[in-house]
């Protein structure tokens, strides 16, 4: 086995890598926060007493969680044009990522909501709070706090999954790598580099999300920093 690593030729592609990195960041950002928002709404609906919306959410969540993201991207980008909906590659992957992450987050948050004790709801209702006030002030904050760690894990996974968008020609970090690799034939070097970048992104995302969590959830902060 004789292989001489040559990273030199890749320097010419620095600009593509950087713009690919930005796109990966953008896709992750939209996928994570769009997915969290969608997931919270869906989790709320799936624990409500409205039968039809509940069923619709159930079907959506199961579809997202039981099909590969790549297939979801293909359906949106290659499938929808058949029924007259034509979307650009970028729009398609944004939609796919939000829908996919939304399905997973919905299921995680649903667990958190169901772990909230019925007596909490009784106390809120007894004070005259409406259903939405109860949801907003009494049910969701502790539920989201409980499931924060699994939601962060899911969102970091989603960040890694954004690499699949390169399959329909979107030039994210992986897409840029594919181009650089096919033009320079320094395949090993290219993918090693972006692997390292993904690892770093992973750490950064985890840290940023956890920081955000500590800022949002005062009780966790208190637990971490000691009682005040």
């Amino acid at each position: 086995m004789e292989y001489t690593f040559q990273f030199g030729p890749l320097l010419n592609y620095l600009q593509q890598f950087v713009s690919g990195l930005w796109l990966t960041l953008g896709l992750s950002f939209v996928g994570i926060f769009g997915g969290i928002a969608l997931g919270i709404v869906c989790a709320t609906v799936s624990t409500s007493s409205f039968v039809l919306p509940r069923l619709a959410v159930r079907i959506y969540v199961e579809t997202m969680r039981n099909t590969p993201l790549l297939v979801q991207i293909f359906v949106i980008f290659f499938g929808l044009p058949n029924i007259g909906i034509r979307l650009s590659p970028l729009t398609s992957v944004f939609i796919a990522l939000v829908l996919n992450n939304g399905g997973y987050v919905a299921e995680i948050v649903r667990g958190g909501i169901q772990a909230t004790h019925r007596s909490q709801v009784e106390a809120a209702e007894s004070l005259g709070l409406t259903y939405f006030q109860t949801l907003r002030f009494v049910i969701l904050p502790p539920a989201l706090e409980k499931v924060f760690t699994p939601v962060v894990s899911q969102c970091v996974l989603l960040m890694l999954s954004t690499s699949l968008v390169s399959a329909i020609g979107v030039e994210d970090l992986t897409g840029a790598a594919m181009i650089a690799s096919s033009e320079t034939f320094r395949t090993m070097e290219v993918y090693l580099i972006i692997a390292v970048v993904y690892v770093l992104l992973n750490f950064i995302f985890r840290a940023v999300l956890n920081m955000a969590g500590l800022m949002i959830f005062t009780r966790s902060r208190r637990r971490l920093l000691g009682r005040v």
């Binding site: 106390a123 005259g128 009780r219």
Partner: peptide
């Protein structure tokens, strides 16, 4: 629901298990 809320505004209840909001 709206009528019931009006009633509940004027009726306080205290439970055996306190039911304070932990967060």
């Amino acid at each position: 629901p709206a009528e019931l809320r009006k009633l509940r505004r004027d009726v306080g209840i205290v439970f055996q298990s306190y039911n304070l909001f932990p967060h």
